[in-house]
Design a protein around this nucleic acid. Structure first.
Lengths: 322, 322
DNA sequence: CTGTTAGCGCCTTCAG
DNA sequence: CTGAAGGCGCTAACAG
């Protein structure tokens, strides 16, 4: 066979104009049943495949979605959450003829966002790690084609997930429960923190919070800070397995027994939770589904719902009370 | 300011034709110093940014690189190796105005490769998990724009990495060393296997190999198979931390002490190696560098070298001999 | 070295 | 509902 047939070839064979062929094959604009059939048949006969780049140029639409992750850590693009989400997007964009690009944004990223808004290769933007200011300052050109992961966008129901773990701790006799929350600059930190605080207050228990940054190192420091400030602590809940791992490490190093002296819970149900000693109680985090949902939102696909359930997974780190 | 200036605007302001402006700004073709300066200055004045999609249409070049991973496992796209590599590619393609798409290929993937070859949105292909047949059967249209991860392409020096671990085992008194190798269908399985076999033979020791698939489940089964077939085994080396983890699990379940009775080594130096009990001796695997190198190869960037060093990381799982 | 002239392949007003 | 015609923005062959 010859080279790739173009729309003009299909039109000629179907005996119609390229305009009509375009309308039929792109599904945009009116067309009679007659011409519709003729064009479709001709396309099949010729093995016609539209040229994605030409199509996007004509439509002014862009050829890639950009996943921009706002974070203070320079190595955030190697974080498992990010790599999982980015890969899910790369897989989801494949059948669309699109691609995915990945980018770190510093906490103040006005200039980068302006650049992305001006870049005509960008079909849509997916934002993670945002706060209110970032969303408010979004360039006008990006509104309507931006999806978000986290607060206000596609997210795990971390309030419910963390809440379930807190309740589990309470049910098994823990009363001095501290929380290692997410960073202050992150909008998504708010929901699980609020859920924790509400439950503790309802139970008449003290609210004890330390802020972390999702790293194991910070988890270690947080555990020590908690034990120093609130010596009676009998449980430490966290909002990520990485931080929970740090907590476990610090407690082990300091001779504190888990779960006998202190119970620990994580979040994400990562492979590490299953492998660490003792096994880490955690809650599931469907990162891939969330990422795909955010891509769809960015591309304007109407949402079925963007809050994804989290299921607790009990392991030894939160056994019964002392 | 007005909308995005086009090349024609730059040319007009510089007092030259669009052809000259194009030559200057794309760096293709000759240009005089005079017109060069004029065009560059005009571009700056106007804040000109070339339209990537238009450029790629005119050049017939494609807008995304496709990372195709050949594997029998349906969930391979969630494998940490794949997610890390895909994310590194997505980050590397961002500044180029390109995107990355991710795709699984079944073991026999002729049809899919034909489709990719015909897809004019594909700028280049990166292949992982290939064997000789797949490379041989690559559509002509993809030759010259395909990069590979693994044998024959960009890869970790797994022969050296695994070799170093085998030597370490030997140095610490192990003599009945079995290997859990990669799958048979994978070309990249060959090098580390050969390195192991050569070292064993040189030391006058028996060569004992079981093939795995990089999963923890298969690691468990492999450990049992090894102990059944070769009861005196005092060390099990593997080519991935995931499989080594399975080995550790099976040995623990069967009451075999590590490292006292059997030493274990992994490969990848993944976070799990540091967290599992006992700590897993492993070797580093610079996945991100390898992925970027493969992208560059696919895009035709001349290579500095595509075999990346692996460094052993000693942990408790391969302590001294009994 | 430079400008003219066609494309690249599809979409989209605008008459009819 | 349909066709003609003019973009979308840039590149490349070809005279000059």
């Amino acid at each position: 066979m010859t080279a790739n047939p173009a729309l003009a070839d299909v039109a000629r064979r179907a005996g119609v104009s390229t305009a009509t062929a375009s309308r039929v094959l792109s599904g945009r604009g009116p067309s009679s049943a007659t011409s519709r059939d003729a064009v479709r048949q001709a396309a099949i006969d010729l093995g016609y495949v539209p040229h994605p780049v030409a199509r996007r140029l004509a439509r002014q639409s862009g050829t890639r979605i950009v996943f921009a992750v706002r974070d203070e850590r320079a190595d955030i693009l190697r974080d498992p959450f990010v790599t999982r989400a980015a890969s899910a997007m790369a897989a989801a964009t494949e059948p669309e003829g699109l691609g995915t690009a990945l980018l770190r944004l510093p906490l103040h990223a006005t200039a980068e966002l302006e650049r992305l808004a001006a870049d005509r290769s960008v079909a849509a933007l997916v934002l993670a790690g945002h706060d209110r200011d970032l969303v408010r300052g979004l360039p006008a050109g990006l509104r309507g084609r931006t999806g978000m992961i986290g607060a206000g966008g596609s997210d795990v129901d971390s309030a419910a997930g963390v809440g379930a773990l807190i309740r589990q701790l309470h049910r098994t006799g823990r009363r001095r429960i501290a929380l290692v929350a997410g960073p202050r600059w992150l909008a998504a930190s708010r929901a699980p923190l609020a859920a924790y605080a509400r439950l503790m207050r309802e139970a008449g228990l003290p609210v004890r919070v330390v802020h972390g940054d999702f790293t194991t190192a910070r988890g270690r420091a947080a555990a020590r800070e908690i034990r120093r400030r609130w010596p009676g602590t009998d449980a430490i809940a966290t909002v990520s397995d990485a931080m929970a791992l740090g907590v476990l490490q610090a407690l082990a190093a300091d001779g504190v027994r888990v779960p006998d002296d202190v119970a620990v819970t994580g979040f994400d149900d990562s492979p590490i939770a299953d492998v660490v000693h003792p096994g880490l109680t955690s809650a599931t985090h469907p990162v891939e589904l969330i990422a795909i949902s955010a891509v769809q939102a960015a591309l304007g696909v109407p949402a079925a719902g963007r809050l994804f359930p989290s299921r607790p997974v009990l392991r030894r780190s939160c056994g019964s009370s002392p």
